[in-house]
Design a binder for these strands. Structure first.
Length: 279
DNA sequence: CGAGCAACCTGCATGC
DNA sequence: TGCATGCAGGTTGCTC
């Protein structure tokens, strides 16, 4: 489930229940996640200073160190009543003093929980990440410069977390559609102009999804976990064989770099060279 | 160095 | 109804 917007929505949802509060205890029922979970006793009794995010990692900074949480493909963090019986795949509980319980559920166990007492951005999971797509360092120029020797597809390129983080399979397809770039194009053949459009499209599609997801935040406590953005109209993802909303062409689905991809062969024509001449 | 692919898991939709 | 198959929103780490 989680692409960047859902992670950010989750972060915003749990932050008010954590910040400036004390952790009472942690319960780990299943430690076999993406990596073995090994959390120190010292977390019990510590105080949460902030709930941040880097890429798709939620970072809970405390007085003794930081929790680094990834939701993988199927993970979620929910606020539940502390006497709520745990269900299947409810792997980890964070009990907050005063009665709140933050519960981590992850059927596929592709997610992860780490703890570090060092500066959190030095952690090996975070040390080599690319720029934030909604941050100042992200631009068409950044994409253009990073792509000059990249022969892989532009879709795989923008999903490479060493270049830019947080662009998952859904939003990669959507952004390429908005920028009218064919996902199969080799990254080094995409023009500077087209990358400028692509960067804007990535910002827009992620930003909008966060805004829409944010509208469900008021229900976060009782939420079934499906954020509003999931219902927003997607232009291409999941619509192979249907009509393009822009030009009425028939959307084509294909597997690219092992991920399902959908695009419009009629209006996602090229790498953008000719449009650069048209301005 | 870059590129392609296997692997980690469960749940769900589909088809026989 | 039961069972086999294929596919799913992520990421690392292996091989070539």
């Amino acid at each position: 489930m989680p692409e960047l917007p859902e992670v950010e929505t989750t972060r915003r949802g749990i932050a008010p229940f954590l910040e400036r509060r004390s952790i009472e205890r942690l319960v780990v029922r299943e430690s076999r996640l993406r990596w073995p979970v090994d959390l120190p006793e010292s977390l019990a009794g510590c105080r949460v200073q902030s709930v941040g995010r880097r890429a798709k990692y939620i970072i809970i900074e405390t007085t003794v160190g930081a929790l680094i949480i990834h939701l993988g493909m199927s993970g979620s963090l929910r606020i539940v009543s502390p006497d709520e019986p745990h269900k299947v795949h409810d792997h980890i509980d964070i009990h907050i003093k005063g009665g709140t319980l933050i519960r981590y559920n992850d059927p596929r166990r592709f997610g992860s929980f780490h703890f570090t007492a060092d500066p959190v951005l030095n952690h090996w999971l975070l040390a080599n990440l690319g720029v934030e797509p909604l941050g100042n360092a992200f631009s068409g120029e950044h994409l253009f410069r990073c792509s000059r020797k990249r022969r892989s597809s532009v879709k795989a390129f923008i999903m490479d977390g060493r270049i830019v983080v947080g662009v998952g399979n859904i939003y990669a397809a959507e952004a390429l559609f908005l920028a009218r770039i064919r996902p199969t194009t080799a990254a080094h053949r995409v023009s500077r102009f087209a990358y400028a459009e692509l960067a804007q499209a990535i910002r827009g599609v992620l930003g909008n999804a966060i805004q829409v997801g944010g509208t469900t935040l008021r229900d976060f406590v009782n939420s079934d976990g499906q954020p509003g953005y999931f219902k927003q109209s997607l232009n291409v993802y999941g619509r192979a064989g249907e009509r393009c909303k822009r030009c009425d062409g028939v959307l084509r689905g294909q597997v690219l770099a092992q991920r399902s991809t959908v695009f419009c062969p009629k209006c996602q024509l090229t790498s953008g060279w000719e449009r650069s001449y048209l301005g």
